[in-house]
Design a binder for these strands. Sequence first.
DNA 1: TCAAATATAATAGTAATACTATCATTAACG
DNA 2: CGTTAATGATAGTATTACTATTATATTTGA
Lengths: 225, 225
Amino acid sequence: MGHFLGITVNEKLYIKDPQSSELGQKIIQNGIILIDEIGFENFTFRRLASKIESTEASVYRYFENKQKFLIYLLNWYWEWLDFRLSNSTINIKEPKKRMTVMLMVLIDAAKKDLEVPYVDEDILHRIVIVEGTKVYHSKEVDQQNNDGFFAAYKSVSERIAKGILDIKADYPYPRSTASLIIESAFNTLYFSEHLPRLTDIKRDQKDQSDELLHMLEFYVQKLLA
Amino acid sequence: MGHFLGITVNEKLYIKDPQSSELGQKIIQNGIILIDEIGFENFTFRRLASKIESTEASVYRYFENKQKFLIYLLNWYWEWLDFRLSNSTINIKEPKKRMTVMLMVLIDAAKKDLEVPYVDEDILHRIVIVEGTKVYHSKEVDQQNNDGFFAAYKSVSERIAKGILDIKADYPYPRSTASLIIESAFNTLYFSEHLPRLTDIKRDQKDQSDELLHMLEFYVQKLLA
DNA sequence: TCAAATATAATAGTAATACTATCATTAACG
DNA sequence: CGTTAATGATAGTATTACTATTATATTTGA
């Protein structure tokens, strides 16, 4: 079982729980840094092992392969985000206000309420933006979905869908719109940096996340009008 | 330069124009089929060569590597889609009607108006849905963007953004919304098949693309209200 | 406290991948 | 008819993605 204040990751994603040992935590910590630095396609267990001054074989004792490792990290992120979404809205009764807070948490503009020493959540957030959709766009998606690899992502999505229905109970597309909001948030952050012609949010402006929040609120408000 | 009724693909994406020779066309045709069958991660030039009874070295004479090959195929698709969007709306003056037609073309519900013998557009469409976002989510994105690898995609997106502004000239987020529409359309088709809890559109229903069209029209109508 | 179990390190090895190079053969072209 | 261009055949290299084996250090618990 996973550790540390409740971030539990699907057991099928690892061979030996990396949160349970020092080496495992170093793998997580430096894996996040390395994937962010060189990108997932260039990332190898050999390089990671060398970075942490361990061996390839040792890393393989924790994770079957780098794909599972990435899914593990993303799962960790979605569990963490799901916790933060839950935690930050627990005392807010008004549906629209709840939605605003969820959007803030989603784009990471809210302050962190759960810190784990071996996970840099900001770097992990970047990884989720860049590599997030790769894991379910594979030939193994159906098998992996059966194994519950995407449960945490679906939980986040359903939480937002529920927030939509709380605002407007007869809204016809809560799930699609929830996915749309999540993907729009991430795409905007990525596009503003790399493909600016695909978005209206500028990278340079210092209140970028304000602008993004306004846009997402605009979407929600218009769609649920 | 590219061939066949105007599908021209960025020259930097290939070493030798595959549309100009029989072997090149076989590479395109069977490459599409093979990627669809086994997925891009399992796809290799060796396997492709064996499928077309040629050699790895021969395939490498056309494309530098499989990543460029995928970008080539996606580019081909975006050029083709851009042409169809343009072609199918050229005589429609009413902005809302134009948008509807564009949405229909986007989800492939409209009949084809340009057929190329060595490209199965339906299979290619599936590849775009599954592998489409992988190409720009890489460490090379900025260099590749400079080289114009995503120009065709941006052209499609801008065409839709323009369609949005034609309906409502002061709409604040035309580009983001255009991206959102494209990605929503593709995600819905993928999710309905593999991660149905992330969408409200069911796979089984026989009028699936009708439902998808309705949803996209709902989005456009609400957002531009 | 000693023996046993466990975790990691060190090393080696294999099959597949992602190419590059060379040379022979065929087709096409002027 | 001779030259050029395209493809095929074959081989080779570096890297990747693992698996296996043995040695050593650490922890545990009887």
